[in-house]
Write a protein that binds this DNA or RNA. Structure first.
Lengths: 341, 341
DNA sequence: ATGCTCTGCTAAATCAGTTTAGCGACGGGG
DNA sequence: CCCCGTCGCTAAACTGATTTAGCAGAGCAT
């Protein structure tokens, strides 16, 4: 790869100038006193030779690589990761940077290895993304450089990017209220206090807080809160069946995420109930499945692209608002309607 | 980042030897005549100083970076990408390599830029992955080095990794035959010849060929072939409704992918039919949704991790079987049963 | 004529490794 | 005693960029 590329020396020779001159011109250095003609000659030579600088050589000297490490536990390979990576890639490209991606799989040894490998390559900064764990212990090795946490927080007060789950909870509640739902709003997906899987608990707590506060402001309380050990369709299914066995049927179900909502759809379908005529369903995440179910599922979207983008911006442009909450826009679909009769 | 790391010179000094000696020892060079004691001293010094080589410096000299470019059109950010990337990451890690990931979004200018950026960084090879286009025009710039195509073929006879769609078609057909289905097997998801979206057509052709040939070997033909413009749930839904309006109801439906199958589930549910008692459904891909639907959907899994892994292996270990077909294992789930009465 | 400044440019050091060429000491054979 | 080969190791070149320090010449004032 790149066997006989032109070097800076070649460009300089062709322009009849020194490497110093060529370097300065090509880097657009201010305050150099090189003549306009010298500029022309260098540009022409570089153009003619198809010159492209050797990044390894450059970064050896400058200690900058225009490379960002994107280290995640398991994010990189979940369906949720796509958007994060895409957003980060876009923002990186706009700044002429490139992404070195690794996954630790939550394994401490892999993590250690991954971080070292990245640092060996002199990355300019690290985006540390998490899916499984929302509050992480950041490996000390990377604290020396710039770090941004993505979808995670830490005790070190590092800059981080998070979805605005609380506000999304508010939006969801407002939506149901606006449609006229009041006393028969159910929720599924609470996790029991003892099972504090940090993934669920942090997001869940924020979402729940947003929902409760907004409802409370209108004098409404959740009628039922169904627990789920995990946020998978089968748990949504079971929780919904449990809901339906109660004396009063809810007019709306808030699901803590779309996979639960999918389970709820299945249970409601089996019970012969029609969404949204008999019961409304609304949820969080905007998983692709939300647009596949019938009727489409209204849901507060996790803004993955925005988040990935924001992480790179924070890392490179470093405006020092340390925590960045990205809004979760509501995708309005047909699963919500006014309560029946 | 990495401001005061120990250098090779530091290690050498501490070991009381030259940089040359230290370099040779640490690289495990054969045929050097350095004493066992010298080896010990170098290793000890490196250990004590926490020495890690500077990759930029090394690759400046060796022109090797232990870095692989993973360039894709849109794969990197679709739900299908996760596995590809994970497999590639794993295989890369095993070989102490690292992945530089980019996405071209199918845009020629982005692609040009992406490739140049990768080559500037002296990557040791390029994995060129495609989702949208199965047969691609490979940019000439990367042909100079090692290239492996992932989920794609080209006219240049480059090494490539593909799922074994044809064989999977055979497996699906065998499965239905084994359950006793014969004359009432329907298929949905054929695309009309004129709409030759290359993504669909190449995979679809192979799958269909596998199905037809295997059925034919048992003297069976597909009863109906339903067309779909794209492979989305809504098209599966429509195609299935069309199927059900025909005089004889199929005993089994083969869907060209899981999203279509999901649409089929919806249509069958609305028609009051039970899977698999009234009708069997079987499909391709093993999208997460296949395990979420009730009953679970039997499907031939796209072996994304294996494919990603294989691509790296082909690139680095370069056994020269140029095309690598990765088997698609059948996930047996409850959606298939013997035909009703 | 001398000294000074400014202009336009360059030599050489530097980054941190790898690699080539070869040096001094020692032992053995002729 | 001299020559040669081997052993154990090192000096220096090299990779391709950036950056520091500074040089030659022109123009101007003294």
């Amino acid at each position: 790869m790149g066997r006989n590329r032109a070097t800076l020396a070649d460009v300089a020779a062709r322009a009849g100038l020194s490497k110093t001159a060529a370097s300065m011109v090509l880097n657009g250095r201010e305050g150099t006193r090189l003549s306009a003609e010298a500029h022309q000659r260098v540009f022409a030579a570089a153009e003619e030779l198809g010159y492209r600088p050797n990044i390894a050589a450059r970064s050896l000297r400058t200690r900058k690589t225009a490379t960002i490490a994107f280290v995640s536990d398991i994010v990189a390979t979940t369906r949720f990761a796509g958007g994060l990576i895409r957003g980060a890639l876009d923002a990186a490209r706009e700044r002429d940077h490139v992404l070195l991606i690794t996954e630790t799989q939550g394994d401490a040894a892999f993590e250690q290895y991954a971080i070292e490998t990245m640092l060996d390559r002199q990355v300019d900064g690290v985006i540390y993304a998490a899916m499984a764990t929302r509050r992480l212990a950041v490996p000390p090795a990377i604290l020396a450089g710039r770090v941004v946490l993505l979808n995670a927080t830490s005790s070190e007060e590092l800059p981080c990017v998070l979805p605005d789950d609380e506000r999304a909870g508010g939006t969801i509640a407002e939506t149901l209220l606006a449609y006229g739902h009041r006393d028969r709003i159910a929720l599924i997906g609470r996790n029991r206090p003892k099972e504090h899987d940090p993934e669920i608990s942090l997001a869940a707590q924020a979402r729940l807080r947003g929902i409760r506060d907004t409802l409370a402001a209108s004098g409404v309380e959740l009628a039922v809160e169904g627990f789920c050990p995990e946020w998978l369709p089968e748990h949504g299914y079971t929780a919904t069946r449990a809901l339906l066995r109660r004396p009063t049927r809810p007019s709306a179900i808030i699901c803590m995420n779309d996979r639960l909502a999918f389970g709820a759809y299945q249970a409601l379908g089996e019970a012969g109930l029609t969404i949204p005529d008999d019961i409304s369903v609304i949820s969080f995440d905007d998983d692709p499945i939300a647009s596949w179910v019938r009727p489409g599922l209204a849901t507060a979207a996790l803004p993955h692209e925005q988040m990935g983008r924001r992480a790179v911006e924070l890392l490179l442009d470093g405006d020092e608002h340390d925590a960045s909450l990205v809004p979760m826009p509501l995708r309005r679909r047909r699963s919500v309607a006014p309560p029946a009769g």
